[in-house]
């Protein structure tokens, strides 16, 4: 009896927080989906107009395309580099802790710093990357000023920032693979590649899944990188989902429409994660 009362008492901060900062906003966002609102004047009911507008909105599809373009480069690159470094670090390596700490440094540093730094590295004329490229006699690259390259450039930077985290996650996964499996494979005379393909990869499938999901979520959350580097340009080629929601809400004060965009993007993110889950689970199922 006493525990009943104390239990709810201990949960009360959570319950109050949940009611005010989660339940209410969610209910309110459901209301907003069917209204037009600029914060100042009263809510105006518009039925399904916000939704029909989303599906006719070229910029919405552009932002969606940009997000997938980002993910298609970011996820494979992230996995290849992280897995490569993790496999090397998982061997008998001196200074393993040192290397791990260096690779992890960009993970802890604010995305604002990373973006400002890479903004300079990518600079067309004075950027470090173009200086390097020109010093070996190749033409300079329009990293951020070409609509085709701007998003891949941001994806490369995001990989550079996050890959240390995934190195650590893969290392944890690799260390859970029983040594005896490799010893058995050695007796059978398996090559390094066969061991990697037949033992390591299947055994770290759950880490794999985690990396894909976390990268997908970060792609749908992309904001500060295009906000600082390109403002969404050139020609909206780096307009991300969150940046577009932000612009609709705080540049144009279309609160109802911005809430609808958020809702639709969240549904898409959810669907993508579910599909990834299905595909990756089927892969393990042999």
């Amino acid at each position: 009896m006493k525990q009943n009362r104390i239990g709810w008492l201990f949960l009360s901060p959570y319950l109050i927080h949940f009611a005010v900062f989660l339940a209410f906003p969610i209910v309110f966002s459901l209301v907003l989906l069917f209204h037009q609102w600029d914060v100042v004047s009263p809510l105006k009911f518009v039925g399904l107009q916000n939704f029909t507008k989303v599906f006719q909105d070229k910029l919405f599809f552009k932002a969606l395309f940009n997000t997938f373009y980002f993910l298609i480069i970011h996820i494979p690159l992230q996995i290849i580099v992280a897995l490569l470094l993790a496999v090397i670090l998982n061997r008998k390596i001196k200074f393993r802790g040192f290397f791990r700490a260096v690779y992890f440094l960009p993970v802890v540093v604010s995305g604002v710093v990373i973006t400002m730094l890479w903004n300079q590295l990518y600079n067309l004329n004075s950027g470090l990357l173009n200086q390097l490229i020109q010093s070996i006699g190749l033409p300079r690259v329009a990293w951020l000023t070409s609509p085709k390259l701007a998003m891949p450039s941001i994806a490369i930077m995001a990989t550079w920032k996050n890959v240390g985290l995934y190195v650590v996650l893969f290392l944890v996964g690799l260390q859970s693979v029983p040594k005896s499996m490799y010893e058995a494979a050695d007796i059978e005379g398996a090559s390094e590649w066969q061991k990697f393909r037949k033992i390591t990869l299947p055994m770290i499938n759950s880490t794999f899944f985690m990396v894909v999901i976390l990268s997908t979520i970060s792609g749908f959350s992309l904001f500060i990188e295009p906000y600082i580097m390109t403002g969404g340009g050139p020609m909206n080629s780096t307009l991300s989902a969150v940046l577009y929601i932000y612009k609709q809400a705080f540049n144009f004060y279309h609160m109802g429409y911005a809430a609808t965009l958020g809702f639709v993007f969240a549904i898409i993110l959810f669907t993508v994660v579910l599909i990834q889950r299905k595909v990756l689970e089927r892969d393990v199922g042999y």
Partner: peptide, 16 residues
């Protein structure tokens, strides 16, 4: 609630 993406609550939380 852990599965809720922040994109849903961002705007209504600001209005709050």
């Amino acid at each position: 609630t852990m599965m809720l993406p922040f994109q849903i609550t961002l705007i209504p939380q600001y209005l709050l």
